[in-house]
Amino acid sequence: MTPTHLPDAVPDNWVDRYAPAALVPWLKLGRFDRPTGIWLLMLPGWMGVALADAAVGKYPDPVLLILILIGATLMRSAGCAYNDIVDRDIDAQVERTARRPIPAGEISVKQAWLAIVLCSLGGLIILLSLNLWAVLLGVLSLGLVAAYPFMKRITWWPQAWLGLTFNWGAPLGYAAATGGRSPFDYALGLPGNEAIALSPWPAVLLYAGLIFWTLGYDTIYAVQDLEDDALVGVKSSARRLGEQAPRGVLIFYVASFVLLVCAAWLGALGPLFLPLAAIVAVLLSRQAARLDIADGAGALALFKSNTWVGLLMVAALAAGLWKQQGGAPF
């Protein structure tokens, strides 16, 4: 009997267990049966908010965090549908992806485009509720999103492009947390929130660090498809690194951690950032140490553990709001 769940979804995921049969293909198109990607798209936005608010001694704004969660969920769904449209011929030849709704014939390309439009409209409404800098950053991200599915045909490092794309929420969240007027405020004649002037460099360093984080965890994810990708001719960092993948992931994670600490330092975060950041370092190093390129199932488990790593990063940045006397970092 063919299992109903997709290979990279847990067997008892809520979509297969509880969703009405008519909605299952649509929810799988948006990867709601595999929520790790939602977390990994959302968490950089939360980190940007936590970094900006901690720099001025504030707790992260819960309303802004919820807006980022909703926006990330909608845009991840749209991005997955777009990726599946572009990759439908390749997905049909790869065991892990052959039963996705489009290659499996459960959803047509036209129907998938409709889902993209609806999710994008929802994401646009969320974006327009933020300040103008955040709106501009959101618009600029579209080029990265549009190009990503083609990178695996062009470069051995599509995971680096995913890093550029998936972590765009970090500078966007940082910009949104600085306040100011949104397009809705201008349209309705409202004053908006008080704007806070912050240096952009902590956000730039955070973004750079998260790119290396994604390069590491998506290299781990790509280990699952090493054989199929070689047969189909799809490129990936896992294929490029081969047996050196664990060492490569460790290098990526070291770079990520160093840049994260530099972002916190420039943001003048307090000393409580450090113990939580140390736990992040331990978890990332353990991922690299445990990676086995012959163990696809193990690689998937390591990849999914990055949800907890990301939550710890958010907590570390938020904890930095408690500062030493005089406001000196750490």
Results as ranks from 00 to 15, higher is better:
residue 123 G to E: 13
residue 201 W to A: 12
residue 251 I to S: 09
residue 119 C to A: 15
residue 300 L to Y: 01
residue 214 T to I: 07
residue 55 A to V: 02
residue 73 T to N: 06
residue 37 G to Q: 01
residue 236 S to R: 00
residue 273 F to K: 06
residue 60 P to R: 01
residue 317 L to H: 04
residue 330 F to R: 07
residue 254 V to D: 06
residue 312 L to E: 10
residue 146 A to Q: 07
residue 191 P to E: 08
residue 169 G to R: 01
residue 52 A to D: 00
residue 63 V to H: 14
residue 9 A to N: 02
residue 125 I to Y: 14
residue 115 A to G: 11
residue 156 W to S: 07
residue 166 F to K: 00
residue 63 V to M: 14
residue 14 W to T: 05
residue 316 A to E: 04
residue 153 R to N: 06
residue 24 V to W: 04
residue 236 S to M: 01
residue 204 V to M: 13
residue 255 A to V: 13
residue 9 A to T: 03
residue 152 K to I: 04
residue 278 A to M: 14
residue 21 A to H: 15
residue 12 D to F: 15
residue 254 V to L: 15
residue 133 W to G: 12
residue 77 S to W: 05
residue 90 I to R: 06
residue 309 V to T: 06
residue 294 A to C: 04
residue 188 L to P: 10
residue 118 L to Y: 05
residue 233 G to H: 07
residue 140 L to W: 08
residue 214 T to S: 11
residue 306 N to E: 12
residue 76 R to Q: 06
residue 272 L to Q: 11
residue 283 L to D: 14
residue 97 T to H: 05
residue 324 Q to K: 11
residue 118 L to R: 02
residue 72 A to Q: 03
residue 267 G to M: 07
residue 226 L to F: 12
residue 98 A to R: 11
residue 23 L to E: 13
residue 255 A to K: 09
residue 293 I to W: 03
residue 39 W to F: 11
residue 237 S to C: 14
residue 234 V to Y: 03
residue 110 K to Y: 12
residue 254 V to S: 02
residue 330 F to N: 08
residue 66 I to N: 06
residue 230 A to S: 12
residue 272 L to E: 07
residue 153 R to H: 09
residue 102 I to G: 00
residue 163 G to A: 05
residue 16 D to T: 14
residue 124 L to S: 15
residue 247 R to G: 15
residue 302 L to E: 04
residue 256 S to V: 03
residue 283 L to P: 01
residue 227 E to Q: 14
residue 98 A to Q: 09
residue 306 N to T: 13
residue 174 Y to Q: 04
residue 129 S to L: 10
